[in-house]
């Protein structure tokens, strides 16, 4: 049910697909994080996700919980859906100390602005 739809979306919209897998020159902030100067949006996303897992950044209950628990959707300090950014991650995610996993793709996308028609 999703496959034909997805297939259609991809074949209909080759540009969208290209945005995802084309190698692009990274901005300085990302370059430091990735340790390479070129990557695709998909590759970058995967790298960030594995970084989060490797460094155990999902919902560490320590930092200033009280401050954020109010604005967060969930009161569970062990909520795995929240990423507590370390300094490195903060650098690429708008300096946010906490990021919801659900908004991660949107935040990542900010580093990959749409190409202007030339």
């Amino acid at each position: 049910m999703l496959t034909p739809k997805l297939k259609k979306a991809i074949t209909d919209n080759p540009k969208k697909l290209a945005d995802l897998i084309d190698l692009v020159n990274l901005p300085t902030t990302l370059r430091e994080f990735m340790g390479q100067s070129q990557t695709s949006r998909l590759g970058c996303f995967k790298r960030v996700w594995s970084y989060i897992k490797e460094n155990n950044l999902q919902a560490c209950p320590s930092v200033t919980l009280a401050m954020y628990s109010a604005i967060l959707w969930t009161k569970d300090p062990n909520n795995k859906n929240i990423v507590c950014c370390d300094e490195k991650l903060k650098g690429i995610l708008l300096g946010k100390p906490r990021v919801d996993l659900a908004e991660l793709p949107t935040l990542m996308k900010l580093h990959f602005p749409k190409k202007q028609k030339s």
Binding site: L6, I10, L20, I21, L42, L101, A102, P105, T106
Partner: peptide, 17 residues
């Protein structure tokens, strides 16, 4: 494929937001 897996994830998260 990476691409379709990611596209689905991204779409789902967008929908969630």
């Amino acid at each position: 494929s990476d691409v379709s897996a990611y596209t689905t994830l991204e779409g789902t998260l967008k929908w969630l937001m």
